[in-house]
């Protein structure tokens, strides 16, 4: 049990309010909560990669950081225009 793992443990619970907003809010609130969850996940992946002592798995956090913006854009574009 190292400090990074404890940090990840604590950070995991910040996903709870995101989850509540994703399933309970209106359209915009849901989208914002989803984006927030993406950011939290990026940081969590960094923490976990450090906690497991596997530097090669930083790729996951990098992938999430690059892709989460595009994911938000998909919803923003379709919610504003077609649905």
């Amino acid at each position: 049990m190292n400090a990074w793992l404890m940090g990840a443990d604590v950070l995991l619970f910040t996903l709870v309010p995101c989850g509540i907003a994703v399933f309970r809010g209106n359209a915009i609130e849901r989208l914002v909560a989803l984006e927030m969850a993406g950011i939290v996940q990026t940081i969590l992946l960094v923490f976990l990669a450090e906690a497991f002592h596997r530097p090669s798995t930083y790729d996951l956090a990098l992938a999430m950081a690059l892709l989460t913006f595009g994911g938000g854009l998909v919803f923003a574009r379709f919610l504003e225009r077609w649905l």
Binding site: L62, A63, L66, L67, F69, G70, L73
Partner: peptide, 11 residues
């Protein structure tokens, strides 16, 4: 968005 395209291809 367009600024992200290059890094995504490299990654």
């Amino acid at each position: 968005t367009l600024g992200l395209v290059g890094p995504l291809v490299v990654f």
